[in-house]
Write a protein that binds this DNA or RNA. Structure first.
Lengths: 365, 365
DNA sequence: GTGCCACTGTTCGTTTCTGTACGTCTGTGA
DNA sequence: TCACAGACGTACAGAAACGAACAGTGGCAC
C-alpha cells in the first residue's frame, strides 16, 4: 500500500479514518499495511486512547464506546446516586420522599435530597448544584411548571446531562427535547372522578367543588371533575377556587358565601381540595348547624389529616409513598438500561377512603 | 454474516444491540451468527452481567431488571405463573410477547400464552380457560374493547379473581370495579405528535393522515393528531380512514383518490397508519411518478417493515418489546406487593426513526 | 563530528483471549 | 418421578497480543 514512510500524525489520521469506516482496527493488520512494527501501532493507539479518541481493546482499537470505557477501570461496585429536588419538605412531600427513601434503600442506591421552593429560579439553582457536584447519575424533579416559563423550564430539564424523571409533574404535551421527558405522578383526575362517582352512587346529583387557589393539582382535579360530570350527566354544579383553610384571612366569609350558594342551588355534596380547607369548612358547618353528612356530604382531597375531623371526613388519598417508590424504581431501571430505553409515563391511582362525612343514610343507593 | 473476527467489545456491543431490539438473546444463536464458540458468548454475557448491563438467564441473557436484583431469583422462581392473552400471534403482538417472555425469564416467573381473536367472546373463553386451570396468579390481557360491549367487558375483567393488567388497551374512564384496572400501553397519541412535529420541523404545513380502518389504535392516533395540529396551528389537513394495503381489494382506487385530494389541497406530507398501507402507497407513488420525499414526504406508523420500502420509510415505532417487558415487571411487582399496592397506568413513548421518505431537501430549516 | 532528542524496532517474559474437553446443572416431557 | 437434551462453567492449553527494557536510526543544533 504505502511504501513511503509516514509521520506518526499521519498514521494516526489513517488509523482514525479506518476506524470510522470499519468501526474497529487491528494492530496486526495496520502494522502490515503501513509496514511498521506492531509496537509502533500500539503506541499510536495508546496516544489516541489517552485523548479518548479511540478505545483500546486487546488486539486493536474500536471507536470510543461506553462499554469500553466502563471496561477499563475495573469498578468494584457501581452504586448509583440519585438526586431528588422537591419544592417543600414539610407539606405534601414528606410521604413521597419517604417512599423514595425506602425504595432507594431496597435497591441499594443513594438518594440525595434537596428542598427547593415553588420558585423556578430556586429550582434551577438546586438542580444545578446537584449536577455540578457531579455525584448524581439521575435526577427526580418536581419543579414549578406554572405560567409562562413552564416550557422553558421543561426544555432546560430535557437537556440536562443526566436522566431526569418528573415527580408529580407532567409537561403538557409533546416536548422538543431529545427524548420525551419521563414522569411519575398521581392520577388526580382519576381521584376526582372517584370522589364524584362515589357521591353520585350515594344519590347526590348536585355537587359543588371547592379548589384551593394556585395549586398545580387544581388543573387535574378540574379535568377529572369535568370528565366525571360529562360521564354522569351532571352539569349544573358550582366550582369555586379559593383557599379557605383556618389560616387564610377571611376564610369564614368565603365559606359563608360558598355555603349560601350551595344552599341556593340545592347542592347536597361538596368536594374540597386539601384537608385543611375541608376541615375548616366542616368546622364552620358544625358551628352553623349544617349537619354533615345529612345536610351536606363532604369529601376531602388529599387525606393527610381528614380522619381527624369531627365527623371524620371521607377523602381521596393520592398514593404518595408509592409515587416516590415508583419514581426511584423507574430511575434505577433507566440507569441500568441506558439511553435507548424508551421513556415512559406512569400514572398512579389514588384511593378513596370512605368515612362518616359522605355516608348519607337515607339516600338513594 | 460477519466473516471478520470481532473484538470482544464489539461482540458485546452487538449483543446489547440485539438485546435492545429483541428483549433477549440466546447463547447458541449468537455463537452461530458471530462464528465463535458458545463459551465465548457466555463469557461476554458474564462480563456484561457483572456490570449490570444484562441479566443472565438460562440459555442467554435479557435486559436487566431491578426487581430481579432486589429479590433473589430463587424466591420468585416457580413462584408465579402469569397468563397472557393476546388477540393475535402473528401481527403486531410477537414483539410484545417476546418482551414479556424475556422479562419473565429474567424474573424467573412462568408465562402462559394464549392467542385469541379480535372477538370479545373468544377473549372471554380464553381468559376463563386460563383461570379455570387454576395455574395462573395474574393475567396480562389485550381484549377487544370496541363497540357497545366494552364497558361490560371491562367490568367483567375487573371482577376476575386474579390481578389483571391490560396491555395496549385502556378503559376509557373511571371504572366501577373494586380497583381501577391497571394498564401498560404505547402512547400512540404521543407517537403521532412526534410524527407531526417532525414533518412540521421540515417545513411541511399541509399534512394528511391516512388511518387504517377499524384499528383500536386509530382513536389514539387521531387524538394525538388533533393535539399536535392545535399546538402548531395546522387545521386544514385531510384525514382518511381506509385500509390501503396491497391485500385490500380496490386499494389502488382509494390511494388514487387520496393522492388526488392531497394534490388538490397542496398537501406535502402524508402520515400512514401501519406499514403495509404505507408501503402500498409508496409503491403506487413510484408507479405514478410522485417523488418521495420531494413531491410527498411520508411517515409510517408502526415500523415493522417500513425500512424495507424503497425509498426507506420514516416511521414511528411503538416500543413493543418494552411494553411486554414492563407489563410483566408490573405484574410481578403487584403479585409481590399484594392487594394494597395502588393501581397504576403506564404509557410508553414510541420512537421516531427518520429515514429517506421524510428528508425533504429544499425545505425550510 | 558530537550530543541530544524523537521516533522506531527487537527481544522476551507476561497477560489476555479463545477453544476443546468434560463433569455438573437445569428445564422439559414422558 | 425419571430420563434426557441442552446449557453451564471449570480446567487446561495454545495462540496471539501486550509492554518493559534495551537498541538502533535519523534529524537537528552546536
Amino acid at each position: 500500500m504505502t511504501t513511503q514512510r509516514l509521520f506518526s500524525v499521519q498514521r494516526q489520521e489513517l488509523l482514525l479514518d479506518e476506524l470510522r469506516r470499519r468501526g474497529a482496527v487491528r494492530v496486526s493488520d495496520l502494522a502490515r499495511e503501513l509496514a511498521v512494527s506492531e509496537l509502533t501501532i500500539r503506541r499510536d493507539i495508546d496516544s489516541l486512547s489517552r485523548r479518548n479518541l479511540v478505545t483500546k481493546v486487546h488486539g486493536g482499537a474500536t471507536l470510543p464506546t461506553p462499554i469500553g470505557r466502563a471496561n477499563r477501570p475495573r469498578q468494584a461496585r457501581d452504586l448509583f446516586t440519585i438526586g431528588m429536588v422537591v419544592p417543600s419538605l414539610d407539606f405534601y412531600w414528606p410521604l413521597i420522599v419517604s417512599g423514595a427513601r425506602a425504595a432507594a434503600a431496597a435497591l441499594g442506591v443513594n438518594l440525595q435530597l434537596r428542598g427547593s421552593s415553588y420558585e423556578p429560579d430556586e429550582d434551577r439553582r438546586q438542580i444545578s448544584r446537584l449536577i455540578e457536584a457531579g455525584q448524581v447519575q439521575g435526577l427526580l424533579l418536581a419543579p414549578s411548571l406554572e405560567g409562562e416559563r413552564a416550557a422553558e423550564m421543561v426544555d432546560w430539564i430535557g437537556h440536562l446531562p443526566v436522566p431526569t424523571i418528573l415527580v408529580e409533574r407532567q409537561p403538557d404535551r409533546w416536548t422538543s427535547t431529545p427524548r420525551q421527558i419521563e414522569c411519575v405522578r398521581s392520577d388526580h383526575s382519576l381521584g376526582m372522578e372517584m370522589a364524584v362517582h362515589h357521591l353520585h352512587q350515594h344519590g347526590h346529583r348536585r355537587i359543588a367543588l371547592l379548589l384551593s387557589k394556585g395549586s398545580p393539582t387544581s388543573a387535574y382535579l378540574l379535568r377529572g371533575w369535568r370528565a366525571a360530570c360529562a360521564d354522569l350527566g351532571i352539569s349544573d354544579a358550582i366550582v369555586v377556587r379559593e383557599s379557605v383553610a383556618l389560616t387564610t384571612p377571611g376564610h369564614r366569609k368565603i365559606i359563608s358565601n360558598v355555603l349560601a350558594e350551595c344552599h341556593r342551588s340545592q347542592v347536597t355534596a361538596l368536594i374540597v381540595h386539601s384537608d385543611p380547607d375541608a376541615i375548616s369548612v366542616a368546622q364552620y358547618c358544625a358551628e352553623k348547624g349544617v349537619g354533615i353528612p345529612d345536610d351536606l356530604a363532604m369529601v376531602s382531597y388529599d387525606d393527610e389529616v381528614a380522619h381527624l375531623a369531627e365527623p371524620s371526613l371521607s377523602a381521596v388519598r393520592p398514593a404518595k409513598t408509592h409515587v416516590g417508590r415508583v419514581a426511584v424504581e423507574l430511575m434505577v431501571s433507566r440507569l441500568l438500561d441506558g439511553e435507548r430505553r424508551p421513556s415512559q409515563r406512569v400514572l398512579i391511582a389514588p384511593e378513596l377512603f370512605v368515612r362518616q362525612s359522605s355516608l348519607g343514610r337515607g339516600r338513594v343507593r
